[in-house]
């Protein structure tokens, strides 16, 4: 098999399918006029991200991605969309302004950054994407051992994030229920 064909293996084909669906759903999410359909395309995007994680053998992150984003947050979004009855397209007419030009500029900056990362760090990224580097890569076992390893610096950020989430919960309850 020639060199050109060698990179065209099944995992790469899978990656491109998922990547194209993912980008398309992201674009459709913005372009769609109907908020419920937008939410559904966002869910599709989340699912594709989960599949991409899975293709890098990060099973735990993939499952959490679906549970937290697709299963929890987006259900709440849909709930709000339906309760406020903004399901009709007319409710979401946006005025012009700086939003569109700013978005174009930011998109160009982002694409340049991506290209820069691809040009500079291609070899390192290939190295990172090889799941056989660490045994049990991406399993709950490996993630837990890495996070809670005292010799690694991840424990403090992890616990700090937990406290941040706790503050969020307490804040939500305080805001929602003024008289407890």
């Amino acid at each position: 098999m020639g060199r050109g064909l060698a990179i065209l293996n099944w995992s790469l084909i899978g990656f491109w399918i998922m990547a194209i669906i993912s980008v398309c759903s992201a674009v459709l999410m913005i372009a769609n006029k109907n908020p419920v359909r937008s939410a559904l395309f966002l869910v599709l995007g989340f699912m594709m991200q989960a599949l991409l994680y899975l293709s890098m053998s990060a099973q735990f992150i993939a499952a959490v991605q679906i549970i937290v984003y697709a299963g929890a947050i987006m259900v709440l979004f849909l709930f709000v969309i339906m309760l406020l009855n903004i399901g009709s397209p007319e409710a979401l007419k946006e005025r012009g302004g700086l939003q569109a030009p700013a978005a174009v500029v930011l998109a160009i900056v982002f694409l340049l950054l991506l290209a820069g990362v691809g040009a500079l760090g291609g070899s390192q990224i290939n190295h990172l994407m090889n799941p056989s580097v660490i045994p049990n890569y991406g399993t709950v076992d490996a993630i837990g051992k890495t996070i809670f390893d005292p010799s690694k610096p991840w424990l403090f950020p992890f616990e700090a994030t937990s406290i941040l989430l706790l503050i969020g919960v307490v804040g939500a309850i305080t805001l929602a229920k003024r008289r407890l």
């Binding site: 419920v36 499952a63 549970i67 299963g71 929890a72 709950v140």
Partner: peptide
């Protein structure tokens, strides 16, 4: 699956979409 029970939780949490969207 290494995270079997999370996989099942993830999929059962998706089931609510069908019901909500059917209603809407």
């Amino acid at each position: 699956v290494n995270v079997g029970i999370l996989f099942i939780l993830a999929l059962t949490s998706l089931q609510v979409y069908g019901i909500v969207l059917a209603g809407w």
